[in-house]
Design a protein around this nucleic acid. Sequence first.
DNA 1: CTGTTAGCGCTTTCAA
DNA 2: TTGAAAGCGCTAACAG
Lengths: 333, 333
Amino acid sequence: MATMKQVAERAGVSISTVSHVINNTRVVSNDVRQRVLGIIDEMRYIPSAVARSLKNDKTHTIGVLVPNSSNPYFAELIRWIEDAAFELGYNIILCNAHGGARKQAAYLRLLMEKRIDGMVLVASGADDEQDLLLRHQAVPIVQLERALPGLDADLVLAGQEEGGYQATRHLVELGHREIACVSGPADLPRTRERVGGFLRAMAEAGLAVAPDRIVHEEFTSAGGHAAFTRLLGQTQRPTAVFVTSDLMALGGLCAAGAAGVRVPAQLSVVGYDDIAGAGYALPPLTTVAPPKRDMANLAIELLIDRIRGQYAPPRSTALASTLVVRASTAPPQ
Amino acid sequence: MATMKQVAERAGVSISTVSHVINNTRVVSNDVRQRVLGIIDEMRYIPSAVARSLKNDKTHTIGVLVPNSSNPYFAELIRWIEDAAFELGYNIILCNAHGGARKQAAYLRLLMEKRIDGMVLVASGADDEQDLLLRHQAVPIVQLERALPGLDADLVLAGQEEGGYQATRHLVELGHREIACVSGPADLPRTRERVGGFLRAMAEAGLAVAPDRIVHEEFTSAGGHAAFTRLLGQTQRPTAVFVTSDLMALGGLCAAGAAGVRVPAQLSVVGYDDIAGAGYALPPLTTVAPPKRDMANLAIELLIDRIRGQYAPPRSTALASTLVVRASTAPPQ
DNA sequence: CTGTTAGCGCTTTCAA
DNA sequence: TTGAAAGCGCTAACAG
């Protein structure tokens, strides 16, 4: 691959002149400029970002660490992050945290070695994260959805608690009183906050929540399926259920269908995340929609801002989620 | 951030010694080694992959260019690609081609500047790609699913035609004769081959295919929804339909449900891709499953192989897809 | 067993 | 308007 030096030689100018025509960083006679540009084209010269990075101490690369990039919610988020970053001239190194602490530690290390300019962190909430992240070497970080304790970084929140509250309010307003909640593992913060909103709405409505009306399962469709199966087997069935993730809700819908329970006639279901599939579920799922695109834009904006700027105290911004009412909810029979 | 030089000074040794203890690249007395290691730890020194890359002409980074990373199929593929690459010490730069030729060209350029070691290309099939890709500067490339004409690169195929054939055979064997096909835009190769398999199976079974029995729509759930709506409005309804993508099939299932058409009793549906959501559709979707994980592993294997190795003629490997029979197909009434 | 040194490809003073 | 040269952080001869 051609180098600047070779271009310079071929053009009969100094290497610094070539650099300057490429970067438009000082006046160059039109004559020389054209000649250099011609040679560049001819030699198919492409400047080395590696050499540039070494010199400038910037890589224009940001790491994106998510629990699992194949989960539709994260996949959608990543897509917007990638988009926003690209517009600003940054590339994304994609990292999946799932696979255990070992992988995560290795990744963090790798990212630091690669001298990423910053990173977007969508915390999985696993406890082993904290320890690892503290090793970060003062790289700008923006956290999405959850603040790791002790990590001094910007934060973009999406009102999880409020979302859970809205979803539940919707159910209450429809007239439901027997409302269950299906959530992910109890130790995941994302889930916990959403359940918190559920509890607040229930309490506010003066509705009791029996312990067996809160079901924890894996954060997957399979988990949702299992949870619904369990719930529908109870002697006193709920008439509505708030599910803390669409993936689980979709699994639940599947279980309900298989059990001959009609949604929303016999059972109302509200999900969370508004993944693409939710709109085409059977029936189309009422769900809480976090502003994924806005979150991504804001995260990148904050990050680049910090990359470029001086130190500033960590900023925390909360974005509002909205309830998208579709066909999976109705008044109780 | 600490540099090797600083470490060397603090340890009272030469910079090359530090380098050698880090890389285990020549014998170092235990005494010195321990001291250096101690300082490294103390200074929280992390070697710079940027400097290394400049020296070694390797970045251990590979670009992954897909049409749209938020599409569950690609998202799943990417996840496995990331996984496989990571195991071999490579990072992934994620690139979405969608967004037009402008973005794609810019990305390609960026990747070349970043001196990626290689790239995995999941061709979108858009025509504007070809021109762009030919600009690549002899970077090793592995193509997934489709060969760009004129691109001299390894290739991993997934038997699209055969998959379409299998899906249709399944329908034929169940006794269906009125079989329709819903596919993406006619100009997308991925879709075209799958439709080809459909046609072959139909011809082989001596079944005629009326032109209006092949419906083209956008490659999304919305497209599938539209296609089914169209199909179900026909005076002579098909009893089964092969859909060239799960995303579309899910949309179709939704449309069928809304129209009161029962699947599989009144209409059998076969999808393609086996995305995670397919297993929890209502009813769970019978679909053709490309070996995503194997494809990803093979792609990375081929790529790294080529990155490390000498020139070899382009290799092309076809992996078989399998039909996953679930609950969306049954004999006609 | 250890140190000196020449680059890798670029940016950017400093001089002319 | 242009060029020479130092140096970014590292690796790997080459020389002790």
